[in-house]
Amino acid sequence: MGEKFARQWWWKVLSILCVAYAITGGFLIEVPQRFILNESIRNLYFHVPMWFTMIVLLATSAVNAIQFLASNNIKYDIISIEAANTGTLFGIMGISTGMLWGKFTWGAWWVNDPKLNGVAIALLIYMAYFVLRSALDDQDKKAKISSVYNIFSFAILIPLIYVLPRLTDSLHPGSGGNPAFNQYDLDNTMRLVFYPACIGWILLGVWIFSLKTRISLLKQKKIFSE
């Protein structure tokens, strides 16, 4: 099912249209004026979709790791590592857009906040995953052990990103008494840009990931045929 979907073109066109619309609309369309946030609220169109894309890709990575352990087919391991690679890339983009926003809104590149620390730890976990992979030589052993670590760390990532920040107060929009990106603040003109932006960036992430996977699978084929 995945391969067939990867070769279809309609969702790639949709992704380009959505991202192009989100970038132009994100900068040009009127936004509600909120205290403190002001025009920086536009970062919502860029910062938040990065996290959605990251989570989609990391979940794909974990699911494929499970499938690898269940089937022992090396293809799933390649899909898993490429999803983790692309997911980490989007995580780094999410953190940089967030830092840029934080510099203008909070006055600092980094603040001690559960959400920020959570994603920093999440990225550290995936960097450890890449180190683990490079430390193992034998391909089957590498695939098996790194799949186990992938699933193990994904299980810890969920409470880290979704549960812990919701239990503590934070400066981040969406918690405590701060201007929040929730149903009261996010008005309909913003939704008009925000939802296409999410769809566009997620599809773009999936596209990058599917291209990387195809390249890796071809390289793998070459190794076996030589």
Binding site: G118, I121, L124, I125, V131, L132, S153, I156, L160
Partner: peptide, 10 residues
């Protein structure tokens, strides 16, 4: 150390 630090931080 590399594998366990990020996991144990929370």
């Amino acid at each position: 150390a590399v594998l366990s630090f990020p996991v144990i931080i929370p």
